[in-house]
Amino acid sequence: MDESNIKTVMDKGNYTFDMLFNDIQADSTDGIEIPESVYMSNREYKSKLIVVQMLLCLADLYKAENYNSNEKLRNAIEIKVDGDEQLSGYMFFVSQNPQFNYSWNYMRKCRTNYIEFLVNSIRFLNNVLVDINLLTGKSWPGNNIHVVFHDILDVELTSEVPFVKSRLLWENFYRLAMVKSDYNIVVKIKNNLLKTSNRKAPSDMKNLIDSVFDMINNESKKNTEYETV
């Protein structure tokens, strides 16, 4: 890969959770473009925004560099969730519904699953942020390059600071509840699929970037040869 493609962090600054959240909620505040497809109501959108905000705040609080092992992160989240008195009160209140046979068991199981959900989504968001910052470390040729993380987050690479524009794919919001430690990454130019990868470690992202660059370079070489002929 051409070294000139590598931008320094000093040039651009890092993409942060705050910037990510700004991008995500810009839909609603900039042009009042609450997704028109009406796959959700305004109120549903606001409820989802609360969840996204909560997850991003947690991801920022439990940064990967400080909570580098899953066990450490799980312990921290467990302390937080189990120590939440209001959540315990809410569990009691919901469990009084006859559907749960006035039993707390279901709610207790849910709380354990909830801890897992938080751990997985925090890990996911932290990893995505690392990946985005790897992406913005390169000078991408042309526009319309999109990197989609697990069908949840669509990141467009742009030529202006901060070099990315993220958009949450609200129609796939439910996938947040199912995300695990590894996830899919799709690289597209406009709507044309360029490359897909299953990301298990940061090195996978680096490899993906390298192979996408190779593809783009080969393609432009071919075009040049055709033109020469």
Partner: peptide
């Protein structure tokens, strides 16, 4: 913004 999002409102 954080406060109001948690109360189903948005500050522009």
């Amino acid at each position: 913004r954080r406060f109001f999002i948690n109360h189903y409102s948005i500050v522009r």
